[in-house]
Simulated assay, not measured.
Amino acid sequence: MALAIGLSLVAGSRLVAASSVEASAQATYEIEPREPEYLYARTCGYCHGHNIAPIIRGRSLPPAVIESIVRSGMGAMPAFKPTEITDNELDALAEWLSQSEADPEEHGG
């Protein structure tokens, strides 16, 4: 019985530790949003600009249109959830893309 209680306490402490790590990771992610350039390079630029999807930089697309497409998806492009890109990150990314200049290194699909 003592062994079962001991194992239960260990398992419970691991659960609490995992929960606190998850909570602090979430708080850090929300406090320190990723930069639009980073998000574009790591997420959008994988397809856009590499002969897979249309070029989106330098087109002066309205931020509201970008945000809507990112959240809803379009054609082969998947929708991105707030757990993948926060609302604050999406706002900054949409503004950055709207004001960006075309990159001569990119090619449309």
Rank of each mutant, 00 (worst) to 15 (best):
M1N: 12
L3R: 12
A4H: 09
G6F: 14
L9R: 07
V10A: 15
A11T: 10
G12K: 08
G12D: 08
G12L: 09
S13M: 13
L15T: 14
L15K: 03
L15I: 09
L15Q: 10
V16M: 06
V16K: 01
V21E: 15
V21R: 04
V21S: 08
A23N: 08
A23Y: 08
S24R: 08
S24F: 11
A25C: 10
Q26F: 10
Q26A: 05
Q26M: 09
Q26E: 15
A27N: 09
A27R: 03
A27S: 11
T28G: 09
T28F: 10
T28C: 06
Y29V: 13
E30P: 11
I31Q: 12
E32T: 07
E32P: 00
E35K: 08
E35R: 04
P36G: 05
E37A: 09
E37T: 11
E37N: 10
Y38C: 13
Y38H: 15
L39G: 00
Y40D: 00
Y40L: 01
A41S: 13
A41I: 07
R42Y: 14
R42E: 11
C44I: 06
C44A: 11
G45M: 08
G45K: 01
C47K: 01
H48E: 06
H50R: 12
N51D: 14
N51G: 13
A53N: 05
P54Y: 05
P54D: 13
I55E: 03
I56K: 00
I56R: 00
R57Q: 07
R57F: 10
R57Y: 02
S60P: 01
S60E: 09
S60W: 07
L61F: 07
P63T: 04
V65S: 11
I66K: 00
E67Q: 15
A76Q: 14
A76M: 11
M77E: 06
M77P: 01
P78A: 04
P78W: 04
A79L: 02
F80C: 08
E84D: 06
I85C: 02
I85L: 05
T86G: 09
L90F: 03
L90Y: 00
L90S: 03
L93Q: 00
L93N: 02
E95P: 02
E95C: 06
W96M: 06
L97C: 01
S98R: 02
S98F: 03
Q99M: 09
Q99D: 14
Q99L: 07
Q99S: 02
S100G: 05
S100W: 01
E101D: 12
P104S: 04
E105A: 08
H107F: 12
G108D: 11
G108T: 15
G108M: 12
